[in-house]
Amino acid sequence: MLKSTFPWLIVAVTGCVMIAAFFVPPLAEWKNEAGAWFEILAAMAFVVGGANLFAQHLKKISARRAGWGYSAVTLFSFVVTLVVGLFKVGVIGEDPNYPWAGHYQAEGSALWWLYQFAYQPLIGTMFALLAFYVASAAFRAFRAKNTEATMLLTAAFIVLLGRTYAGTWLTSAVPDDYSALTFPGMTAIILGVFNTAGQRAIMIGIALGVAATSLKVLLGVDRSYLGSDGD
């Protein structure tokens, strides 16, 4: 009862109240309040996630499992970042009466250093790898296996050309009356007709999917995320 049924009751009641909040103006503020509560809960959940990360890597190190050295690196960087961030190491507050009031990532602080010289370059480079991956994806698409893949590739090719100077130049000889046959013209049709239609249908479908899934959650039809009745 307390393990599965009661949580479902919480789901049903809170969900219905939030639906009502859209139609009952005095309840509208509750949506914002619930959003703020979620932020707090997500923040407290970091402790669960962090504890899991700590325990997983510690286990790997103590068992000397393959790659335990990398776990040690992870654990070390995790603990160092956590400590310097929580204790605001190197942060100089504007007001000397409130030494803890300075921004946690003020220039020159330890957390700033970690962000600037470790976090940011690592994340930025990982993001930049996308340029190479997009090239390999394009190459894969070139080997279009069927009609659908050919259409995807052709549309991509036209839009790529249509949005660059090369596309305009290549079809500059086309008379103005047939401007729809130029690369920019075809791009406009692809974006204005096909892309718009596709995106709208996808959005309508997703809205219905979200509504049906939410309803199933509220009615308790699909409770897999709450686990089983056993502990």
Partner: peptide, 29 residues
């Protein structure tokens, strides 16, 4: 694609009450 993700669980469960929700989505369309 899109809505199919939300339909997947109903499909995989094969339970009548979940399959019914798919028909409800179709009615929405």
């Amino acid at each position: 694609i899109g809505e199919e993700l939300f339909a997947a669980s109903a499909y995989l469960s094969g339970e009548p009450q979940q399959l019914g929700s798919l028909k409800g989505q179709d009615a929405g369309k």
